[in-house]
Amino acid sequence: MVRIQEALDTATLGSGSTSAAGQDEAMGQADFDQHLDERPHEQQASAGPSNPSVSDEVEDRLDAVNQKPEMKLVVISNRVAPFDPNKPQTGGLAAGLEPVVERSGAVWIGSSETYGGGVERPLQLVPTGAGHVARLDLPAADHPGYYRGYSNSTLWPALHSLPDRMSGSEEDYGSYRRINDFIARAAFDVRDRDAFWVHDYHLLPLGSDLHDLGIERPTGFFLHTPWLTPDMIECVPNHCELMKSMLKYDLLGFQRTGI
């Protein structure tokens, strides 16, 4: 769980500057702003023109606190946003992640919603703003069991405490795992990026599949539904294996009730 934080810490340290005595470290943004606000008005007005060295120091500190760590991120979800101004965004996931890709340079991997024969091909990265999108033709033979079966007929009702709506089969779970493995193998082409950020219940075991392939980058997961209650977990077929594979992520994020 600490691997993502270590990566962020390393990137942040690399972007700043330190002195031997440790006294010239860049202030946090809030501390620096407070420091400026507390200075007498006359001193603030006169510091720039009369003392260039003070002005230079201020500029250096601003550069340090405003510099952000660069992280080459891979985002993975079942679907990707259309990135088309003429098509409406569907759902908060698309609305939230589209600007991340366009502005930060992330790679977003998801289904093309066209289904193929399961043949593995090199990942096709399509430029989108500063980032890229890779749309996968998921295997047609396994997609019904993965999507309509285990994801939406088993996991979705369980996650919303609706046991009467649950259905599915062992074959559906097999398709679910094979699709996750297919996506993991496609993501192997971008294994050298800094971290993988996976979304939602369609891809609960993907972190385990990524690590099994030898991808050692940090992996994080966020669930966009409520988490299962203890009694509902036991209703999910193969729940023990599924939970163990989910715990292979380095960081897990869940929704919570408002405070």
Rank of each mutant, 00 (worst) to 15 (best):
G168P: 03
Y147R: 02
L228A: 15
V100F: 09
R61H: 09
T154V: 13
P88W: 12
R165S: 13
G149W: 05
G105Q: 04
A7K: 15
T12A: 12
A134H: 04
G207P: 05
R165M: 12
N86Y: 08
W197I: 00
A30D: 14
P99W: 07
M232I: 00
R165D: 14
H199K: 01
G16L: 15
H239I: 00
D212M: 04
S19V: 00
G214P: 02
G174H: 11
K87G: 00
L242Y: 02
E102P: 03
Q34L: 12
D63K: 12
A141F: 03
G174D: 14
N238W: 11
P52M: 13
H211R: 15
P139K: 05
A95L: 14
V65S: 07
D37H: 14
D33G: 13
D250I: 06
P139N: 05
V65D: 02
G220K: 03
G145W: 14
A7F: 08
T12G: 04
L213F: 12
R178C: 01
C235P: 00
E42K: 11
L228D: 02
A47I: 06
A7N: 11
G174K: 13
Y146Q: 05
P40W: 10
H224P: 06
H211T: 10
D142F: 04
Q43C: 06
T225A: 08
Y173G: 07
R121V: 12
L8K: 13
R193A: 08
D200L: 01
Q67L: 10
E98N: 05
R217F: 00
M243C: 12
A94C: 13
G48I: 05
L136T: 11
M27V: 00
A106F: 01
R191Y: 00
I233R: 15
L125V: 12
L155P: 07
G16Y: 11
Y150R: 05
A130E: 13
K248A: 11
F32D: 10
M243Y: 12
R191F: 00
R79W: 00
Y146P: 09
A45C: 08
E70L: 08
D63M: 11
R177F: 00
G28P: 00
P139M: 04
P226C: 01
S19N: 04
P85R: 07
E120M: 15
S17V: 09
I179N: 06
Y147L: 04
D192W: 01
G96P: 01
S17H: 08
H199V: 03
D33M: 14
D63F: 11
L136F: 09
L97F: 07
R178K: 14
G131N: 03
F182V: 02
H211E: 05
G92T: 06
D24G: 04
L206N: 02
Q29D: 10
E113P: 00
D24H: 11
R121N: 08
P88E: 12
P40F: 11
L8F: 15
N238P: 00
V133T: 05
P122I: 09
F32Y: 15
G214H: 06
Q255S: 12
L8T: 11
Q124K: 15
A134D: 03
D250L: 05
L159N: 08
A184F: 08
D56R: 13
Q34F: 09
Q23Y: 07
Q5S: 10
